[in-house]
Write a protein that binds this DNA or RNA. Structure first.
Length: 733
DNA sequence: AATATTCCCGTTTTT
DNA sequence: CGGGAATATT
């Protein structure tokens, strides 16, 4: 027995560097792993968990907290492969808190069946709150209230604490709004995202017994991406490890990119102060990227002043140069990238290993179109979007009401969905009557006395009440069956039956929801409906990316954290976009630039072999095309190992008057937006479509098929052709 | 009450 | 540009 364990341990330590081994074999006491990008952190962390399980503890005494569900799933899988740590708890902070709060609901002071309010719900509730407070939303914009409440909760300020902090009129009003918001939220049995963390932190703080109980349950706690923890998460981490101090934090200050939502980089920077006995392991060797990619990223991040020096190095090959390419427009950029990908793929690269990153989601549209036209398969990391679709939210709202009848936001969503003749007037009367009577809306609509005050509409409301009680039968079913039951009996399926066009038809999405729940049920046969709902509420964007499909992956830079690809494109390196600034023209704050730089660093360091940074000289955003300025980040890259194609134009021209030679002709910016199939317009001949295109050394020849049946040829540079957007033409062809 | 239409606004990133 | 809300129409 002993020998087999020894053999296991031996196995866990193979192929590790000295630093990695040190981290893996560390057992008791606080440990900080400062892990640069691509330094084998995941491997170290999983081996360490397995090592702990083999030597000093049981797997079920280990708690690992990750940043996304996808990361949790991956870590779980990698630990499972090692075969010695089955039974570990691996989840995100939010999922952990949701589970613990539900499990210990009585001690946390939350309802057993609380429902999770997402951003959309929060907005709706804020609007209701403003009405309740008699404040005009013109003066108190829901957006600013949202931000303020979020800030308060991230700082773990209750309404009372918040109110004590400031005395001016604006803050006092915010305090009043926050207080009312909390009151309504509590009445509805809801917890918003921030509550999950804040309530858990406060409960642990207050309830020493529970804290002890949990520390006795989890002897070893491991927190990944520690640089992105906020005040509440930090508090939870500290409280869970107060006595044993077996906290292993891993992270990289250079990859802290969530300051805007309350993450405090200080948490990781002051780890050694918080835990004076801490061991610190630095993982600085990069096993992922080529020398050139790493050098470029390192050169960029050096621009940050508030930073712990870190020496990144790699024994990997030099690799091909990092490319910086300027295109004329966002469309040209998208097509250029799409064509480049097509070329790389012809050279044998797999689409699975290609990723496109951008700063804002709105950039994904153009790229999608370009990829589609080039016939390149792609997937977009937007798991949340699916659950935000109207028809999906409808279903979830029904489920929410069934599980938590106090959830008025959900109730009011479904009361007339599908339309059943309960209009705004009736709803207004009903909610008003409920409020005067001091009842919940759900009780009011089942209350004959109140119904009698509704006149003719009472009958319709009664029907709805009856429907809800019929639907409660779903509560006895497994998640997929419950969904199916609700979708068919609520009338949602009938309502969406003949609506929709193509692949994002509501109907198909409803089916997909059921399938997703069925898959969940397979993986978690014991899980109840409310657990599924919780899971659905905490889905993140990256959770939706599949690894086993041959598709290019598109995502925001934020979503890219923790991932890696052979070939990476980062789009939109323009001043104001990356680094992003909301206040063009105003004074931007310096701290933001540092976080933006880290974000760019994260994106660049995802690449193993190929890295391309692109920008557009003109970019259309929210309807208007504007000239852009190249990102200052581009000037922070080394000259060595970086290849710039800034052909044409004059922005950022380094040698004025002299044309930069374009040696690698793969991506001629001006021509890139002209491809076979491109729709064009000619002043004389009208609409046409490019039949073929021949690129010569100096000229490009095109053949165009026109709508009038004629075929005509030009030298592209001299033809008076204009590109036409596909959408503008409809089914002209 | 339901649907069709216009208009107006806000502009990151997300658990 | 695009979504949501206010407004016009049936």
């Amino acid at each position: 027995m002993q020998t087999s364990t020894d053999a296991n341990i031996e196995m866990l330590l193979t192929d590790l560097s000295d630093a990695q081994r040190e981290a893996v074999t560390h057992t008791d006491g606080p440990l900080l792993i400062l892990a640069g990008p691509g330094s084998g952190k995941t491997r170290v962390v999983t081996r360490r968990a397995a090592h702990l399980a083999c030597t000093v503890t049981d797997p079920h005494r280990i708690l690992a907290i990750t940043f996304t569900n996808k990361a949790a799933k991956e870590m779980q899988a990698r630990v499972d492969v090692l075969g010695v740590a089955n039974g570990m708890t691996v989840c995100t902070f939010h999922a952990l808190c949701a589970k613990l709060l539900r499990w210990h609901h009585d001690r946390a002071g939350v309802p057993k069946n609380f429902t999770i309010f997402d951003r959309d719900d929060r907005r709706k509730l804020i609007k209701k709150t403003l009405v309740r407070c008699n404040l005009a939303s013109e003066n108190w914009s829901p957006a600013s209230v949202e931000q303020e409440i979020g800030r308060a909760k991230n700082a773990m300020l209750t309404p009372e604490a918040y109110a004590q902090n400031y005395g001016d009129y604006q803050s006092r009003t915010y305090a009043r709004i926050y207080e009312t918001y909390e009151k309504l939220l509590t009445e509805m049995g809801g917890l918003d995202f921030d509550d999950l963390l804040m309530r858990m932190a406060m409960t642990l703080d207050r309830d020493g017994e529970l804290r002890t109980e949990l520390e006795n349950r989890f002897h070893y706690v491991l927190i990944d991406e520690y640089q992105d923890t906020n005040a509440a998460q930090y508090k939870i981490a500290r409280l869970l490890t107060r006595d044993r101090k077996n906290l292993c934090a891993t992270g990289d200050p250079d990859q802290s990119i969530y300051g805007w939502r309350g993450a405090d980089i200080e948490n990781i920077l002051s780890f050694e102060k918080d835990y004076p006995s801490a061991s610190v392991v630095r993982l600085e060797q990069n096993y992922r990227s080529t020398k050139r990619i790493l050098a470029a990223a390192d050169s960029l991040i050096t621009g940050n002043t508030q930073r712990k020096e870190k020496a990144l190095w790699t024994e990997n090959d030099e690799g091909v140069p990092v490319r910086v390419i300027a295109f004329e427009s966002g469309e040209a950029e998208a097509f250029g990238v799409a064509q480049d990908i097509a070329r790389q793929t012809r050279g044998g690269a797999s689409l699975r290993q290609v990723a496109i990153f951008y700063r804002v989601n709105s950039l994904s549209r153009v790229i999608e179109e370009a990829l589609m036209r080039e016939g390149i398969n792609y997937q977009i990391a937007r798991g949340v979007e699916f659950y935000n679709r109207k028809e999906i939210r409808d279903v979830l709202a029904y489920i929410r009401v069934l599980l938590n009848p106090a959830d008025e936001i959900a109730l009011l969503r479904v009361i007339n969905t599908p339309p059943r003749g309960i209009g705004a007037t009736t709803i207004g009367r009903l909610t008003a009557a409920a409020q005067t009577a001091g009842m919940r809306v759900i009780d009011a609509l089942m209350n004959e006395e109140i119904l009698s005050g509704l006149g003719r509409s009472a009958a319709k409301v009664r029907v709805f009440g009856k429907l809800l009680s019929n639907l409660t039968a779903a509560l006895e079913l497994s998640p997929p069956k419950a969904l199916e039951f609700v979708i068919s009996h609520s009338g949602l399926r009938a309502m969406y039956k003949d609506e929709g066009d193509g692949d994002d038809a509501p109907r198909g999405n409803l089916d997909e929801l059921v399938s997703a729940a069925a898959a969940y049920h397979e993986d978690n046969p014991e899980a109840t409906l409310i657990e599924w709902l919780e899971y659905a509420a905490l889905v993140s964007d990256v959770d939706a990316v599949a690894e086993d499909v041959d598709k290019v992956t598109l995502m925001t830079l934020h979503a890219a954290k923790g991932l890696e690809f052979d070939i990476v494109y980062v789009l939109g390196l323009e001043d104001g976009l990356l680094p992003f600034r909301r206040d063009f023209g105003g004074l931007g704050s310096e701290d933001d630039t540092e976080e933006e730089r880290r974000l760019c660093f994260v994106g660049m360091t995802r690449a193993r072999k190929g890295l391309t940074l692109t920008r557009a000289r003109y970019r259309m955003m929210r309807g208007i095309t504007q000239r852009t300025v190249r990102s200052p980040f581009l000037d922070e890259l080394p000259e060595d190992g970086v290849e710039c194609s800034e052909q044409g134009g004059d922005s950022g021209a380094r040698r004025a008057g002299r044309r930069q030679p374009v040696d690698h002709g793969e991506l001629p910016a001006d021509v890139a937006e002209w491809t076979v199939g491109t729709l064009v317009e000619h002043p004389l001949h009208g609409l046409g479509q490019i039949l073929s295109i021949h690129r010569g050394a100096r000229r490009t020849h095109v053949d165009v098929q026109f709508k009038d049946g004629e075929k005509r040829s030009w030298v592209l540079e001299f033809a008076d052709l204009k590109r036409v957007d596909f959408d503008d033409v409809g089914d002209a062809f």
